[in-house]
Design a protein around this nucleic acid. Structure first.
Length: 272
DNA sequence: CTCCAGGTGCTGG
DNA sequence: CCAGCACATGGA
């Protein structure tokens, strides 16, 4: 199947630090594991991508995943015509970024793991977690390609701490196990959270051990699509301090602040 | 080998 | 409220 939209760059999204299981396999072609399926993504041109191996069961699934209904062009135009030079450059540089609508449990666990790790280390830790507790499957388009799904909460909750420790998650293994147990036992109902407003949602998330403000904001932004959420990590903190001298106002961008943050993050980390 | 990472929890002021 | 520190590990 094909997806058409402006402001949709597979490369930029894959390098944006919001998803950890999307990888370039050759020029302009990416593998992605999500919703328990493996697909390959191909950038056809500036306004079109192709998805290979997508299950026909839910035809709008990938359009939702890539957040097709949101007008990213409007935000880019706003920034390009604004007086903030750093944001003009960031918007120009990352104009193909989007905030994906990813699965809440995967994002919760992934960003618990992310703390105090760099992106390559996060990716490899998540792969090890998937190999240990996910389900091994073969791709329908090519059975020679096998992959592991992201573990279910039930599967992960059934792990014991010693085995988890062997995966090299460091001190985060305990946080991961507890979060998985909270979800598996229904104490944290992710479906229920969908209906909450951002403030309640954040409070629920922060009540988990190992989930602070930054991780909670990543979960609300990347899984619950709360675009007003602004995760402040070491890179963003650096931008706020060094570029803006502590004077930047997120309020000005309201419900787009999280997206603005993403343009900043991508630009500061990837510009040459 | 050393440095640092999409932080959090805890403690002491 | 804020500053300082420990935390466990791997990738660069």
């Amino acid at each position: 199947m094909y997806i058409q939209s402006r402001n949709l760059s597979l490369r930029q999204i894959a390098e944006s630090g919001q998803c950890f299981r999307m990888n370039e396999i050759e020029e302009g072609r990416y593998s992605l594991i999500a919703f328990g399926e493996y697909v390959e993504l191909q950038q056809i041109d500036d306004e079109q991508i192709r998805i290979l191996g997508a299950s026909p069961d839910n035809p709008t699934l990938w359009e939702e995943y890539f957040d097709l209904h949101y007008d990213y062009g409007a935000v880019i135009r706003e920034l390009l015509s604004g007086e903030d030079e750093f944001l003009r450059k960031a918007a120009d540089y990352g104009s193909g970024l989007r905030i994906l609508r990813q699965e809440p449990f995967e994002i919760l666990i992934s960003f618990i793991i992310s703390q105090n790790k760099n992106i390559p280390a996060i990716k490899s830790a998540i792969e090890r977690l998937c190999q240990a507790y996910g389900e091994r499957k073969c791709w329908s388009m090519d059975p020679r390609i096998s992959y592991y799904t992201f573990p279910s909460a039930t599967a992960l909750a059934g792990a014991n701490l010693e085995d988890l420790r062997g995966l090299g998650l460091g001190y985060r293994d305990e946080y991961v196990l507890k979060a998985a147990q909270a979800v598996a036992e229904g104490r944290l109902d992710l479906q229920q959270l969908m209906k909450m407003d951002c403030e309640q949602l954040t409070a629920k998330l922060i009540s988990l051990r190992g989930v602070g403000k930054k991780v909670a904001n990543c979960v609300t932004l990347f899984a619950f699509h709360q675009l007003q959420s602004v995760p402040v990590d070491v890179w963003i903190a650096r931008v706020l301090e060094e570029i803006y001298k502590g004077e930047f106002s997120w309020e000005r961008y309201g419900g787009r602040a999280g997206l603005i943050q993403q343009y900043m993050f991508y630009y500061i980390r990837n510009r040459k």
